[in-house]
Every structure is written in structure tokens, then in C-alpha cells.
Design a protein around this nucleic acid. Structure first.
Lengths: 256, 256
DNA sequence: ACGCCGATTGCCACTGAGCGGAAACCTGTT
DNA sequence: AACAGGTTTCCGCTCAGTGGCAATCGGCGT
């Protein structure tokens, strides 16, 4: 028998709760179905420990076990998550406005809220004729390379912009703004115009226009955007997005 | 100082993981914003313990802390939950079909999947003109008093019906089927017709028609329903629901 | 302003719940 | 039938989690 760690713990100080939650962290849009070892690896925990925690999570319904012994996120977790008021209220109120915007343009409509250093997409309306996007409801978009992101930066606490610049502006597509000066200027413009563009900055062939959804006190609640093929005339679409954003803002201000 | 339990635990044998998850359990549609003591009470745990767990959950983002010191479900939990493939795929595929059904009838359209002894509503389309329903996305409906429920019972493992009968048929509205015989008969009819009705069995003034969404092997994936005011002509609406259910089934069978 | 009461936060002694290495046990593959 | 890769069970050791208590905070009524 080899030497054991003190208390038999590889990482003393890490709480059981945080271990449990870090199991949930390993699931993502690119990894929605994982095996025991895959989860253990990604969560940086021994298999035995991971196995026990997975058992608890599965029993509760946070995860589901597939016949091929893999794990995926379960319905019970979705159910509890769908109670999150921040997304639920916004989503319910915005749906009709998004629908109208879709009818008028037949392009992809997205609504996102700031979450950490990204924008979390909370609702989407898209049809067959619109450009296919990689984005999904529940997915995240970067702040510096999207229209929703620029609008968010323009109407949030200034140090969100500072943090974004500090952690660098990764080049995601040929036309991504990678120079701080350029982004600062774009954000400044967004603040003045109440809308922002992003032309092939995130994905080649796709562009977007966004406008802010604001609370009574002027703070940003969300951003609404149209994602279109790069050849589309963004200038012509901007007023429609702006109008929807205003209507949505007014409706949200009415209810609270 | 008073006597302490062995190990200072009130409830030895209850794991930390299960305690953490039972904190999430206390949140519901009727209790989406709770204070520390309320949570401790409902989860049957001491305040000190609850406080620590709430701290971990908040740090991770599963819960959010409001200025009034209350807790509610956070965006991070919604984000992870939205990865649940069972609801995500179904929801994405069904949306256009639901939209069509809505356009044709201008009534509330619901899609639900079986989860435990209830139906979990996964997606909804409703307009201003339709009857206001209490049901929300993420909400649950009883198996015995709704059209979606009866359809689910008709096309699921027979012992789901047995379990439903065993735990009693609570009277939810004047016309709820409370006699086992009646429910069995209704389920039998649903199996033959491929649709079911519920006339003011759940809520006075509201009725519904539902039809099953089936996998290639005949097992039930979901149920799609129209919820209408009680005065509406259900018989006239049934074929539309049936048609949507078939179209949706076919589309789902195509993709997998 | 003041005092009251419930809610929140911090503290700390005690021990069983959680940890993880290792071995047994499956499951599909050559 | 042997093997490889993953999954499940086992078990001894100990520190992380527990929860009673008390100090502190804060909202509300007087």
C-alpha cells in the first residue's frame, strides 16, 4: 500500500458542494453527453469521487443516465432552471415583440442578457429562410465581436468594458475588432445611436444589428438583435430593431 | 450548553449533496423568491447549515441574491438546465408546428413530456385572444385531469396508469374524473382515437384536446394540446391537433 | 429617535460523511 | 479467449461539515 494524503484528500479545502457543482460545469453545448471518466477528467476529480456525486445528481434528476451509461443534463434541472425570474419574465414579455420583428424581416431575432463577461442568449426566433446561426437559446456570445455585446457594453457599468479590454480581444473572424481603440469607438457610437452593428466580426458571412432594452432608470436589462447574412443592408434594418427595443423597454417598464 | 447529537448532526445519513439539492427543491412557481429562514424551514434544515449551502449555490450562480436579501433561481442554473437534450431538441423541432397550430386556431398550444407522475410543459404558444391559463413553461400538469395527461397515460407503460390510480384522483374542478373506472375508459378511448379531451376537469371554464407525439417504435415522446374556453367546439379542433401531432412525430422520427 | 423582534452572520468543538487508491467486475473488440 | 477501457464496489482514515449559540444587523411601529 502506498502513502495516502492527509485525510485521504487530494485537494483539501475544496468543499463537497463545490465539487458537486463543478460536475454540472463540465456540461456544455459541445459536451452534452459524457461518460464517467470524461466527467472526472474535466472536473479534475478522482473517478470514485465523481462516481458517487454522479449517483446523487442522477437520483435527484439533475442528470439522466443513458443506456450507453453516459450522462446528460436531466429534465428536473431544466425545470428548476426555468424558474429563474431574470430570464422567465423577459422571455415571456419579449416573445410577441420578437415575433413581430421576425414577421417584418424574416431574419433571426435574438434577445440576450449580460452574464459574466458574455451575453447569454435567452430567447430566439428564426425561420427557414434566415441564415443558420450556431447560437442556441442558453448559448453565450462574446461582448467584443457581436452587436448585442457592443450594445451591452455601451449601457452597462464602464468597468465591464475595461475588463473586456483587459482580457484581450480574440480574433474570431476576419473582421473582428481586435484593437482596443476600435472597440471603444464602436461602443461610444452605440451609446449615442442606441444601436450597434457587427459585420462579419464573429462569423464569416453573418452580420448583426442590436439595440438596448432599458429599465426606467436607464440601466440595461437586455439587448435585442437581428442576425442576417453579411450581404443584407444593415442600415435599413436598424430602425426596425430600434423600434422593437423601445417597445419592449416600454412594456417591461410598465409591468415593474 | 444543551446536549448535542452524535457528530453534531440532526439527521445522520443525509448526505451533503442531497442537502444541497434539497435547497433547490424548495423553489417553485409559487415560491420563486425566498428568505433564508423560509428556505431552511422548507428544506427542514438548521439555519446555519442552510446559510452555508446558500452561500455556495450563490457563488456558483445557481441562485441570485436580491437587495432585499432574498434568494431566487439564477441565470447560471437556467443556462445549464437549458442543455437538457430531452427538452431542447423537442422544443426546437416543435416550435414551428406549434406556431402553425396557433395560427390556425388562435388558441393556447402546449407541448408536454412525461416526468414522474405528471406532465412537464416544455413549450407554449399563446396569444392575447386565447384563454389565460395558469400553466407556464416549466410547469406541471396532473395525468388524470388533463388531455395531455390522458394521452400520456394511453401511450406509456401501463403501470403509469396503475400508479396514478393508486395514489388517488384528487378533485381539481367540478368535472374532474375521480372514479378509476371513468379514467380507465377515457384512457382506453384515447388509445383508440389517438386523441383525448378534458372538459373543465382541471380548471372551471377551460377545456383541452391533446394528441400523442410518438417515436418510430410507438413509444410516447410528448403530447401536444390545445387549451380553449369551455364553450369551444372540441370535436372540431381535434383533427387539427391530431394533424400537428402526426407532422411533429414524423419530423422527429426523421432526425433520429 | 428609540427600542423591539425577527433575520442574518460568525464562531467553534465534535465526529461520521466523504475521500480516493485499489481491486473486482463488466462490456465490447480483436 | 485474452485484452483493454471503462464502471462499480470496498474500506480505513481523517478533516470538512454540522448546528447550537450568541453577537449583530435592519426594518418597523410608536
Amino acid at each position: 500500500m502506498v502513502q495516502l494524503m492527509a485525510g485521504n484528500r487530494l485537494e483539501p479545502g475544496r468543499s463537497t458542494a463545490s465539487r458537486l457543482l463543478s460536475v454540472l460545469d463540465v456540461f456544455s453545448i459541445k459536451a452534452e453527453e459524457l461518460s464517467l471518466v470524461e466527467i472526472a477528467d474535466r472536473a479534475a476529480m478522482p473517478v470514485a469521487t465523481t462516481y458517487r456525486l454522479l449517483g446523487e445528481l442522477t437520483k435527484w434528476g439533475a442528470l439522466e443516465r443513458l443506456p450507453n451509461r453516459r450522462y446528460r443534463v436531466g429534465l428536473r434541472l431544466w425545470e428548476v432552471g426555468s424558474l429563474a425570474p431574470r430570464q422567465r419574465d423577459l422571455r415571456e414579455v419579449s416573445r410577441p415583440f420578437m415575433q413581430d420583428l421576425y414577421e417584418a424581416t424574416h431574419e433571426n431575432v435574438q434577445v440576450g442578457v449580460p452574464e459574466g463577461n458574455e451575453v447569454l442568449i435567452v430567447e430566439m426566433v428564426s425561420g427557414r429562410s434566415a441564415v443558420p446561426t450556431v447560437t442556441r437559446v442558453g448559448g453565450r456570445l462574446p461582448l467584443h465581436a457581436t452587436a448585442v455585446g457592443k450594445v451591452t457594453l455601451a449601457f452597462s457599468d464602464p468597468d465591464l468594458l475595461a475588463r473586456t479590454l483587459q482580457q484581450g480581444l480574440p480574433k474570431l473572424a476576419p473582421r473582428t475588432l481586435t484593437m482596443p481603440r476600435m472597440l471603444i469607438q464602436a461602443v461610444e457610437q452605440a451609446r449615442q445611436n442606441h444601436f450597434a452593428f457587427a459585420v462579419e466580426e464573429m462569423t464569416r458571412g453573418a452580420s448583426s444589428v442590436a439595440s438596448p432594452v432599458l429599465a426606467r432608470d436607464g440601466t440595461l436589462i437586455a439587448a435585442i438583435a437581428l442576425v442576417v447574412r453579411a450581404s443584407a443592408d444593415l442600415g435599413r434594418l436598424a430602425p426596425a430593431v430600434r423600434t422593437s427595443a423601445l417597445a419592449l423597454s416600454r412594456e417591461l417598464q410598465r409591468t415593474r
